[in-house]
Design a protein around this nucleic acid. Sequence first.
DNA 1: CGACGGGTTGAGCCAGCTCAATGGGCGTGG
DNA 2: CCACGCCCATTGAGCTGGCTCAACCCGTCG
Lengths: 248, 248
Amino acid sequence: MTEESHLTRKLRFGAALGKEEACRLDRLVREAVPVPARTDLVVQYQATEHVHVVKSGVACRYKMMPDGRRAILALLLPGDFCDLHVAILDYMDHSIGTLVDCEISRVSRNEIECMLTHYPLINRACWWATLVDEAVLREWLVNIGRRRTDQQLAHLFCEIYVRLKAVGLAGDHSFRMPFTQETLGDLIGATQVHVQRTMAQLRGAGLITLQDRVIAFPDFDALAGFAEFEPGYLHLGGMAPGPDGSHG
Amino acid sequence: MTEESHLTRKLRFGAALGKEEACRLDRLVREAVPVPARTDLVVQYQATEHVHVVKSGVACRYKMMPDGRRAILALLLPGDFCDLHVAILDYMDHSIGTLVDCEISRVSRNEIECMLTHYPLINRACWWATLVDEAVLREWLVNIGRRRTDQQLAHLFCEIYVRLKAVGLAGDHSFRMPFTQETLGDLIGATQVHVQRTMAQLRGAGLITLQDRVIAFPDFDALAGFAEFEPGYLHLGGMAPGPDGSHG
DNA sequence: CGACGGGTTGAGCCAGCTCAATGGGCGTGG
DNA sequence: CCACGCCCATTGAGCTGGCTCAACCCGTCG
């Protein structure tokens, strides 16, 4: 028997899945088609027949600005649903595309519906995943809107690391980060030139190193502290500090 | 019989509610307690006993930054749930507070659970509402991260107008906007001083007028065009243009 | 070996910030 | 009725993070 799918590993954080549920989920992503980098899976305003799951690689939600800039609104890592619940909204309000070469599982909406009604725990886990997506969006809104570029990048790296770690795809203090500087810019809303300078600064400060597309950090806590990264919003278990904050 | 609640009016966009469902929802918000401005309803990382619904006034989701700045992550207008599905996430990853004097309905989690299991249409409508919240978050991410301050403010006003209109609380080309410039700053991530200058500029350009806390605009389309506002993301019906956008 | 897709570096500019002071409406107390 | 204080809006002056434009470099691949 092969190892558990990234999808199942992720959804385990959202509900106490049994052997049967895990099997059902693993089966969902057994088959996957290769999709080259920079390919759209779903185009804004189009209704979709299928539900997509990332099996390997990285995809993203994005919107194009009138002036041609691309705003990346979410990263879709292995084990992430791309468009699970759009049926409720009638149409997508954004597009989804691959950032690097991917393997994508396409599942018919029927099969999903069937699974969600027959397995309440899977249903719950899927809604959990949707709510976590929303929580991530809130933290991105903070990140993009309130932090300096160097912090934004550091925060992004912390998040990717923790998320990859949760599905077993990160190294000890490192992970593969196959994005171009331009993509990083689209992620945080900065220009490629400024990303370059800021990355150089982070490297100079000893917070990260970069070699062969692998990003590593000697001291995760230092990086997290610098980025004001608090993983509670990822809801991956055991990460919530005590109550805090208020109007003041 | 009194008029339909804002809650019901909003959720009608998410599912074809019948008379029975509407009654059930209206009953949910029959009772409400007054809550003064700048009061926390829910504090980050705390588990909550009750579900909150805004009956009148305006509340917000927010997070405090380490340096004391407040990042407002969502506006909660009359008819909006504040914390409907947190039970699935165990704890809140942000706080919720009133921006102005409000009336808030507090409903026990039990009653909500009961309603959601007995009325599938209400259940669907509630999930529709959370998915719309997520869509709004994505658009805010674009707004905060990619647009100039003048566009950000204009976009915010367009959104508030359309959302208030949907629940019957906006005027013809105007709505009550009881926020201070500092609150506007916390909404878009700008300083109060810069909000002031930008508002003056919008007024100077004839895009908006402001009198007695009422914001008005002679030409909504002009304002929307200036802000690049496209209401499709609000999923309030009949607002989606044809398919568009792709990787270049 | 030339083209191309990235990364690196330099120079000048501007939107939005900080600091700071002023003004006006309004409630409260004398 | 006035004086005071408070909250909020307004205005000015200088600073800077991040942008634009423009080279140049380097590894890879046909």
